[in-house]
Amino acid sequence: MNPNTPKENIPLLSDYPFDMDLVAGRTLIEKDNYLDYIINRPQGIKGYIINLTTRGRGAIFDGEKTFLADKGDLLLFSPQTIHYYCREPAYYSWYHQWIYFRPRTFWIDWLRWSSTENGIGRLSIQDKEEYQAILDLFVKIENLSKANDIFAKDTTMCFLELLLIKCAKLDPKNLEHKSHNELDLRIDTVCNLILNDLQQNHKIDYFAKKVNLSTSRLTHLFSEQLGMSLTQWRDNQRMENAKKLLYTSDISIMSIAKQLGFDDQFYFSKVFKKYCGTSPSRFRHSR
């Protein structure tokens, strides 16, 4: 860790905001090194974190009890789930790979691990080759997440999708050929309504009426299943489309903004920079 890096930009600290779509890395904790402390996020975070222990042992408190994570153990923290974990004191080290992400709609089924308590899923990799394959994906995702490449994000999400599928296959419920729980059809309908007309700025009550839910119930259900609000999810889809249009066309930024439901180019640029880390014009000039 660079000592000159602002604390708010260090994902390993408890107060890191996790306001991006994907952040990945590795944490190498050894007794008394600078990372040897308790991560404590009582309210959790907005998205998911998947974690693979590669050495030593970690101790995780789920709000009711403490359990241990050894080499080959996978953890999946759901949105707003308590984060309270550290190196198991009896062990010298705890090394783990981790990925923070906001899921795509059709991934949700793969994120419902049967061995989940208090919002924390747990799986264990028993096969050495399977462990290595999953570890390799964690490393690829970490490296790609830091790459300065216009297609790096899309490639990273492809590898993450493969990782989540591999993890889902390890779940005992799938090994026993039991059926999956699917994404609620009403949420799927809302997502398709949004994707079919990104230009529209319908309020939540519009979508609630379409799927015969109250506004409060739809708000809760959407956030529960996708890890973010309906507005945040719609903005995510708009920004992905904006990136494609900026990269593949010469359409003016104002026209792109209007195509995606923004009447104010300044506000569009503000949202784009929040999600993509740079302005639309700079993104276009990086082609």
Rank of each mutant, 00 (worst) to 15 (best):
P17G: 02
K210G: 09
F159T: 04
A59C: 06
C191H: 05
R122V: 14
R102D: 03
R102N: 12
H202W: 01
G277A: 12
Q237D: 08
T156V: 10
I165T: 11
V271H: 00
G121K: 04
H220E: 04
D188Q: 14
T116F: 08
L13Q: 08
F272H: 01
S115Y: 06
L160N: 05
L260P: 01
F272M: 03
Q259N: 07
D149I: 09
A152Q: 09
D15C: 01
E88N: 08
F272Y: 07
F151D: 02
K71M: 05
I165D: 03
G227S: 01
A152N: 13
K209H: 09
W233C: 07
I50C: 14
C276V: 14
A147H: 04
S14Q: 04
D36N: 15
H220V: 12
D73T: 14
E88T: 09
L245K: 08
L123E: 03
D235I: 09
Y85W: 15
Y131H: 13
L162V: 13
N118Q: 07
L246Y: 00
E240H: 08
N192P: 03
L22I: 15
W107N: 11
S114P: 11
Q43G: 15
R55H: 08
N148H: 13
H285A: 14
K173N: 06
L185Y: 14
E142Y: 09
W98M: 11
Y34P: 11
D263L: 08
C86S: 12
S279F: 00
D15Y: 11
T81F: 06
S252P: 08
E8M: 02
D136T: 10
R87T: 13
S145K: 06
S223M: 02
L144I: 12
C158P: 00
I38N: 12
K243Y: 07
E8T: 06
N196W: 04
R112S: 09
W113I: 14
I134Q: 10
I125D: 03
N196Y: 05
T156S: 08
F18I: 07
S115Q: 10
A59P: 00
S286V: 07
F266M: 04
I187S: 03
I150D: 01
K210P: 06
C276E: 13
S78G: 06
L123G: 00
T5I: 09
A152K: 02
K46Q: 15
H285Q: 11
D205M: 07
Q199P: 01
E88K: 08
R57H: 03
P172I: 15
E117N: 11
S223V: 03
R122G: 01
T156F: 09
C191V: 15
R284G: 04
K273L: 09
L185G: 01
R122W: 10
R87Y: 06
E8G: 00
M157V: 11
L185P: 04
F138Y: 05
Y92W: 07
Q132F: 05
S229K: 00
R57K: 08
C191Q: 01
K140E: 08
Y84F: 15
K128V: 13
P172T: 09
G25F: 09
